[in-house]
Design a binder for these strands. Sequence first.
RNA 1: GGGCAAUUAGCUCAGCUGGUUAGAGCGCCACAUUGACAUUGUGGAGGUCACAAGUUCGAAUCUUGUAUUGCCCACCA
Length: 906
Amino acid sequence: MWICPLFGVHCATFFARLGAQMLDKAYDPKATEDDIYAMWEKSGAFIADNTSTKEPFTISMPPPNATGQLHLGHAVMLALEDIFIRFARMQGKEALWVPGTDHAAIATENVVIKKLKDEGMKDPRKELGREALIAKIADFVEKSQDTIRSQVRKMGSSCDWSREAYTFEPALNRLVNEVFAKMYADGLIYRGHRIVNWDPKLQTTVSDDEIEWKEETVPFYTFQYGPFQIGTSRPETKFGDKYVVMHPEDERYAKYKHGDTFDAEWINGPVRATVIKDTAVDPAFGTGVMTITPWHDNADFDIAERHGLEKEQVIDYDGKLLPIAGEFAGQHIEKARPLIVEKLAAKGLLVKTEENYVHNKAVNQRGGGTIEPQIKLQWFIDVNKPVVEWKGQKMSLKEVMHDVVHHGDITIIPERFNKTYFHWIDNLRDWCISRQIWWGHRVPVWYKGEETCVGAQPPKGAGWEQDSDTLDTWFSSGLWTWSTLIDKKLTEDFSLSLQDLLSGSADYKKFHPTTVMETGYDILFFWVARMILMTTYATGQIPFKTVYLHGLVRTRDGKKMSKSDPKTMIDPLDIIPKYGADALRLSMIVGQSPGADSKLFEEKIAGYRNFINKLWNASRFVLLQCEKAEVDPANVPQEAVAPKSLADKALCHELSLLRDDVTSGLEASRLSEVGERIYAFVWDYFCDWYLELSKGEANPELLVQSIRRILVLLHPYCPFVTEELWKQFKHADADMLLRQPWPQDNAQFPKESAQLSTVIAVITALRSIRADQELEAGKEIPVAIYSAEHAELIQSQSEHIQRLARVGELTVGAKPKKHEQAASAFLPGIEIHVPLEGLIDFEKERARLLKEQENLSKFVQGIEAKLSNEQFVSKAPPALIEEQKSKLAEAEDKLKKITERLSSLS
RNA sequence: GGGCAAUUAGCUCAGCUGGUUAGAGCGCCACAUUGACAUUGUGGAGGUCACAAGUUCGAAUCUUGUAUUGCCCACCA
């Protein structure tokens, strides 16, 4: 607080009454945002009411991983969702935004293990054991959740904290187990030996979608194998090979029949091999013959399954060779590979080596371990079994997933992602849901001797052991939209069925299906598709009606922002104190279209900070006007006051149009466009024209109401600054801004709005002449304006024109008079002359007019060509032809005047 | 190999169902400045809408092809 040297702290009270004096010269987000958020939260305005009769509008916040910091991706998500939610709330809907965090199984366990290793522990899993490690991870998660909570608040997110959820809380565990049990009972979950993606580094399986392919260049070897030559880049898998496979129609090998056997000298001595004919082999690749390793290759596994071939494990789960490798047993495959080649070469079996063979290596996205396919006993979800009740039919999970998007139950924005989604479904294989890590929901299956029990609750009696595996993290996040709406108390009662839990939960009944799922396109498969799969199955409802996919935020150069390169990173937590959350929000929304990546850099953010400051100062100006007129904004009525001047009416009209555009734009999810529209309105129309005009004749009540309207419309985008300013402008009886109803009225002054545009055009033309003629900025100029149509209007607005264009003597008439010593401009139906004897630079004037003449003649020629084209006249819509005609008339008139003017100048 | 997208002013991007003398912000140039705001104001320069062909009375916009860039999916021993 500033303490007045004369009056001490009493000064503060004195200034408080002056209102405007209390607004600083610039908006300071740091000093306001946290307080505003606290005020909102305390008011309970974010808390949705499941008993209300209002139309529900629900968003499930994609839960950030509970591993630490929020990044720009989260910031984009929070900004978008908050706009949707605030708009819905102001439109009078029962808006619910459920926040939460994800336990992010592998990611979180990795982070903690890495941390423990950095602290000196060699093998945390072994040293701590399951219980102790889980406790450590739980601790870490709790801290990280605190961080996330505060960061979500920093962005201004108006989410319902009373309903905050966590994917690994007991209530959700219950639901995970219920769904697992139901799927098991329906035969959708099965346990089986299948080839899976094994990560030897993290000692766990991962799903197909968690794999990343990295290109690498390796040698490609061709070996002699009996009468055949076979190619491989992985000789270390070849120990157990005893089948050669070729295409049944490959002429070269026609003499070999399916099932023929032959003996071949191989790495560790002679082997007997069998010929297999299978269409999976591409005759054009290499020699057209290959040996197979069913245990360590997907395609080979399938071939082996088709022909009932034996499968043998060659590589163990640590990536080392098994006894089958003979002298190489126990060696790591990477080390053994060259030695194996050496041995084969020594035996004369190496035919050739091609260096620079490019192939793709599978690595785990999380942790980077090289994936080794292995056959393992794992839990799977069958995506092809037609047992799901959907729309009165039995469908497979795949079919349901396809159906809901295909038939428009779910709309994806942008639409083109439908194709990607369908393609993914078409290629979807059974989903491996078990993981060998410790952090996550345990597979709810118990064993005792030969007995197996599956259920949400451990079976009664002693001696039961639970499955040691955990579930893929996406299994639980697949339930997110509805599991978070189930009454937590009910989940403690194990006598209730899944159906009971659903039908007994008021939140679920009111708020599900959710309205919009807004998330990054990068997790369309991981998450969005799996929510559709799990939710349609478990609840019989779609999880959400609309999927809005945002893109990645990149650096100015289009690179991904990465933690490893801090220079490229923009941290929302650095930006917010400096520029404010509102500016950050705008910079990520405007210029961003759904599904497309966007580039963010500091100048962009600064630009929106400037905009917010502009709004701040416009408000400050309005408060000063109120003060001058002794109008207390708190007493300015909420219902519309009558506009007085032409500008007032035009403004009212434009504000209504703005309201229409913002409303329809937001309803169509065109967030960028709407942001731009408001930005341009506030700056270019309201500040640059209306406020400037109002300096002549202010209408404080209307000014206050206009600011109120702007604050309401801008609130979803910039909640903090608008709420802060609202305090200054709100009616004494009005509630906080975030609770204000969305305005509804009709535009009613189109004529006045058009008239004001004419006045603005006159002022702009005069300013242009001034700048062109390099007239001294402060100098008042004489001006003559002639217009048959607009003379009266111009006369009535002469004070504005004089002030804003620095005009001294202004002559207005209907009939043009000649001005020789003048610079001139011609608007539709209006002639403007600045008669400045001796001050006009005729060279400049001529150059300017010549240029305009040239442009205009081109334009006129263009239209004339069009209008004399019979095809155009007969086929173009009549309205367009009329428009062209009037444009032509206008342009011709102007051209004529310019030409006259030019001839009188020379 | 298959698919998707992008290509518009120096930079970042709008331009929805084909009819605009192609727009914005930043940057640039000139001028202004004790008055809501220099986180400012006024005026201005700057684009053969990647290229080619086609459809059409009319194409930045639709079709086809080419090029460049990016992403996704598949993965062949």
